[in-house]
Design a binder for these strands. Structure first.
Lengths: 189, 189
DNA sequence: TCAATAAATCAACACGGTGTTCAATCTTTT
DNA sequence: AAAAGATTGAACACCGTGTTGATTTATTGA
């Protein structure tokens, strides 16, 4: 007595592996359902039983990744009451390092930046909340502006990090991000 | 005696207008050559005389935009010898404000982020160069990290700005960006 | 103005991926 | 062993693609 849907889970895994492997070779736009199924050794009809098209499939996979990511991040985010940007950053970067293969597919040259933005938005909101406590006299719009900026900055750092083969440790990267967020130009002195 | 290629320039303009108008409605991936030509009132065969496919067309258009952008930016960038990030930022944001319609197509939800990154890379490099003069004892890698971060941050601010309908002035936005770049968290105090 | 050249049009074509259907087969569950 | 669930295979019409060659229309320069 195995889980119900155990079989579909297996074929979905095959399809997912095929997709990420193809995504390493070329952009999503030139990946066809046909070749995807051929690589996955799955009947094309079976694909359409689960997904509407390749984009729908990636959407669903990303939703799964998102859930996994939140599940991994939630404990560390909720453990610290006074969550400052630096603290969260270190944890987020750590999470990314542990899921490097997934990140490559989404943050890589053929990846989907919207996904990364969506994921990081969670940490952003959490930090904003505790930031309001730390700077009660700061304008709300100002806080939002600040976090928009540093979120974009962090994503850019991650992209470069992945691009360069993740040579530095996540701690190093987080430390640099922390300092820039805190001191701005003072980072260089 | 008109310019040579005056005619092809006209059809290209029609195609470009059709593309940007379609790009406001849906993502590039679901725009077909057929409907593009129908909207532009251009024969499909004519399209293939100029472009290989829709992606190739966007590439060429973006290359044009890039050239226009540089042409507009170059004088302000080269005028100031001691180009600090803040100075450049103000100018770049100003440029974007003047080309709002073009920006919408490339920075919008269906746009091409890589293009924005590529464009802004120019200003980034310029600033990096003069930054080396200001902070001679700072590590080169550190400088690169800093600029990667703030470039990403600025793009994020622009995206939000466009998304919210460009209500604030480019000066306001640039001023905020400047302060964050310079003071980091101190921006909120 | 007229001939030469360049560009856009039109129709037709083979090709390939799409998305759907249905009967047949295999697998899991009870 | 029977029932329900999932995958397969083949066939189908459909539509966009990219190319071709002949024709028409516009632009250029003498």
């Amino acid at each position: 007595m195995k889980n119900p849907g155990h079989r579909v889970q297996a074929t979905k895994r095959l399809l997912r592996e095929a997709l990420t492997s193809l995504l390493a070779e070329k952009p999503l736009r030139s990946i066809t359902v046909k070749e995807l199924c051929e690589r996955a050794q799955i009947n094309r009809g079976t694909f359409y039983a689960h997904y509407a098209d390749v984009y729908d499939m990636l959407d669903q996979i990303e939703a799964d990744m998102e859930a996994d990511f939140y599940a991994a991040l939630e404990p560390v985010l909720s453990s610290a009451y006074d969550l400052t940007p630096p603290t969260a950053t270190a944890k987020v970067f750590q999470c990314l390092e542990m899921n490097a293969d997934l990140c490559r597919a989404t943050l890589g040259p053929h990846g989907d930046r919207e996904f990364a933005t969506r994921v990081i938005e969670t940490a952003k909101k959490r930090c904003e909340e505790s930031c309001v406590r730390f700077f009660p006299n700061a304008d709300k719009l100002q806080i939002e502006t600040y976090f928009t900026f540093i979120t974009g900055g962090c994503i850019a750092l991650m992209e470069r990090w992945l691009k360069d083969g993740m040579k530095e440790s996540s701690e190093m990267l987080a430390a640099a991000a922390e300092q820039i967020m805190e001191k701005g130009l003072g980072f260089l002195q």
